[in-house]
Amino acid sequence: MVQRLLPRLMAALLAGLCVAPAAQAGLFDDEEARARINALRNETGSRLDKLEASARAQLELANQIEQLKAEIARLRGENEVLSNDLVNANKRQKDFYVDLDNRLRKIEAPAAAATEVQPQAAPAAAADPAAESRDYEAALTQLRGGKYKEAAVSFIAFTKAYPSSSFLPSAHFWAASALYQQKDNIGAAEHYGKVASQWPEDSRAPDALLGLASTQQARNDNVGATRSLEKLISRYPSSSAAQIARQRLKK
């Protein structure tokens, strides 16, 4: 804009400078010369006004650009926060799902087992859910504390006292673990086998098969151990227990 206006301004200036010698040559009289100068002055003035106006417009434009930049930055910030929220929401949803899935498995497995294996099992004398979970926790605490003998007794007692408990597969599993720790391989095999056969859908079933194989190995029953490990791999190919089983079979 400025660049385009300036040459024209220069032309006006040159024209203005020509005026004086021309007047001397007598081509214009004073009146006319004055009128021309006035006209030129007005024109230059108005062009200068335009020039200033354009500079002012550029300033205005620069301010607007500044404001637009601020607006873009604000939007970018919003975008950053939203994508972060999305990442967090996705992660939280996944956590929720895993948690829910684990809970559902615990509920579904014993229910399925109950209908299949003990269809007519009379519900034991109105089980007290508070006592049930208290006894289970107590046995678990013994196990955690390394009191394997007591823990085994408690878990076996639990399986008898609460035959319809949702903790039943877990109780058998922990009883087996406690017995295995005491080198009671026969007792351990019985409970591991129970979990694997009665609650094949339970999340502990693969580990139970692995435990069963361990007890068989301990009794030098290599054929039985191999069979258990193969069963584990074919039934639960993606479980972490199956991974261990594959490693053991390689040896």
């Binding site: 300036l6 301004l9 220069m10 200036l13 203005g16 100068i37 030129l40 002055r41 230059t44 200068l48």
Partner: peptide, 12 residues
């Protein structure tokens, strides 16, 4: 250039 034009204005 601007300086020149300003001088011009002054002259005029």
């Amino acid at each position: 250039r601007i300086t020149l034009s300003l001088i011009t204005v002054g002259l005029l």
